[in-house]
């Protein structure tokens, strides 16, 4: 028991004490920026993990839902003066609502057809961001000057922004983590493995896929709002196809179906290009090569699903092993 507690406390300490301390020690705006961007992408990768990794739906338009969140938050903030406290849930709900509408016709498609449909939807939303100038300001993007007002506290310092972003990210990731390691998550995994078989076992495949898609879009929307508030400026190119691919690459590199993997993948693909910044403007080539190498040499990812499940069972401990007659649940 104490080991489980230790891991949890260790993660909290790392996120809220060690990293801020390091950031404070260096005290450069650039580092704060990277830390918050990494947090946003961790959330984004975690949300894609739910739909692509666990439910097995190849989603090629995730960045568009992230974009909806960012645009809703930024436009509410800059045009209607609705601050962060309301803007954040509004962004998530807006993305989830659009995802729901999109899911209605497309959810019964499978494998590659679904991937293509999401690609088309992602591109359509991108075209709307780009060309609906009267609302989204088109290619010029939206400027957002207001700071984060968090339940009345006006947060302007960089470390404060880091804390808010990381707290929201950590909470969302915990929710996603509990979700994927529950019986609900197991149902999602079952329809990834064989949806016809899952349907035969009495699982409502379409509804479950739809829920996973909408929940994932909700968290992507939150990530979008965080992005809009931390960078203060958004433009359509932040949400184009290559961003969708970047997030997909994070999930694939980390290991499909593994949330720690998605987090590691996000950190790797955000932080390594920053470390390699001196090499020149090769960030995207690097993303492509890492993705290719990961598929070729590590088909299970850096932190594969099996190790992720084992890890989850150790952390969540009693919830898994504590069946009525005290038998171990799952495989070892």
């Amino acid at each position: 028991m104490s080991k489980q507690l230790l891991t949890k406390v260790g993660m909290v300490v790392l996120l809220f004490v060690v990293v801020p301390a390091v950031l404070m020690a260096f005290d450069r705006g650039y580092f704060y920026q990277i830390a918050t961007i990494a947090a946003v992408f961790v959330l984004l990768a975690a949300s894609l993990h739910l739909v692509t990794g666990v439910a097995g739906l190849l989603h090629l338009g995730h960045a568009a839902f992230y974009g909806i969140g960012a645009y809703v938050a930024a436009l509410l903030g800059s045009e209607l003066e609705i601050g962060f406290t309301l803007g954040l849930p509004a962004a998530g709900l807006a993305a989830a609502f659009v995802a729901f509408l999109v899911a209605l016709p497309t959810m019964r498609l499978i494998s590659i057809y679904f991937a293509v449909a999401t690609l088309a939807i992602g591109q359509m939303l991108y075209l709307i961001f780009l060309n609906w100038v009267s609302v989204t300001k088109g290619p010029n993007g939206v400027l957002l000057f207001s700071g984060i007002d968090f339940f009345g506290f006006d947060i302007e310092s960089e470390i404060g922004i880091y804390y808010v972003v990381t707290a929201i990210m950590a909470l969302s990731v915990v929710v996603l983590y509990r979700l994927t390691n529950s019986y609900y998550g197991n149902a999602l995994r079952s329809l990834r493995e064989d949806d016809q078989c899952a349907a035969a076992m009495g699982i409502n495949v379409t509804v479950l896929k739809m829920q996973a898609f909408v929940i994932s879009a909700f968290f992507a929307g939150l990530a979008g709002a965080l992005w809009a508030y931390t960078t203060g400026y958004i433009s359509p190119n932040d949400f184009n196809f290559s961003q969708s691919i970047l997030v997909l690459a994070m999930v694939v590199v980390g290991g499909l179906g593994s949330l720690p993997g998605a987090v590691i993948g996000a950190l790797l693909l955000i932080l390594l290009p920053e470390v390699l910044r001196d090499v020149g403007d090769t960030r995207n080539i690097f993303v492509g090569l890492v993705m290719f190498g990961a598929i070729l040499f590590l088909p299970k990812g850096l932190f594969g699903e099996v190790s992720a499940l084992r890890f989850a069972r150790r952390i969540l401990g009693s919830g898994w092993s504590g069946s009525a007659d005290n038998r171990e649940v799952g495989w070892e």
Binding site: S111, I112, A115, N284, I285, G288, L289, I295, P299
Partner: peptide
């Protein structure tokens, strides 16, 4: 099949960015 799809996607990124 999905691994192949993603590897071609990765190749396309590398080619375009190069």
């Amino acid at each position: 099949r999905e691994a192949t799809l993603m590897s071609s996607l990765a190749m396309s990124i590398v080619a375009r960015e190069s």
